[in-house]
């Protein structure tokens, strides 16, 4: 009987000592899983949708080239622009960009590197072809056209 009486007297406080631990665990999970956006995109980037897509798992081995009209048309002018890293570049800079990106990864993994072309829907194929021509010159033959999965 005494047991029943005890309960009625007052609620035992829930032990929250483990709460910080739980929260910290979640925190570490998100800290590890997070990838901060390293580059600010200076071009319009509405990528097309497609169904036959392949995921690029290894982020280190991906070199991203953005293509599209500049968001700030007053500074950069109209027409398709190529963005490498953080700035708008010209077609001549593509080779150097590939060389610099290759330097960042160990030599034995360089052959697995892929160039990801993030092209805006509205950009023209000519610009993309120019880039592809440059990529062939430096023997960076693996290319992925970035797309969004088609909604079904």
């Amino acid at each position: 009987m005494s047991k029943f009486n005890k309960k009625k007297k007052g609620m035992a406080p829930i032990n929250t000592a483990s709460l910080p631990d739980i929260v910290f665990m979640l925190l570490f999970f998100f800290m590890v899983a997070t990838t901060m956006r390293e580059t600010t995109i200076l071009v319009k980037n509405d990528i097309p949708t497609a169904s036959e897509i392949k995921k690029l798992e290894e982020k280190r081995l991906v070199m991203t080239i953005y293509v599209g009209a500049a968001q700030d048309a007053e500074t950069y002018g109209v027409g398709d622009k190529i963005q490498l890293n953080d700035k708008i570049a010209t077609i001549r800079d593509v080779r150097n960009f590939i060389y610099m990106s290759r330097k960042k990864v160990p030599e034995d993994e360089q052959s697995y590197m892929t160039t990801l072309i993030k092209g805006d829907k509205e950009s023209s194929v000519g610009t993309i072809n120019d880039i592809k021509k440059e990529l062939r010159e430096v023997n960076a033959l693996k290319v992925t056209y970035a797309t969004r999965p088609a909604a079904q």
């Binding site: 990838t35 036959e52 392949k54 690029l56 982020k59 990801l116 033959l141």
Partner: peptide, 15 residues
């Protein structure tokens, strides 16, 4: 956090 993985159509350029 952005957990999106880049995906797209893969092609191999001719040498």
């Amino acid at each position: 956090t952005t957990m999106d993985v880049d995906a797209g159509i893969s092609r191999k350029l001719p040498e």
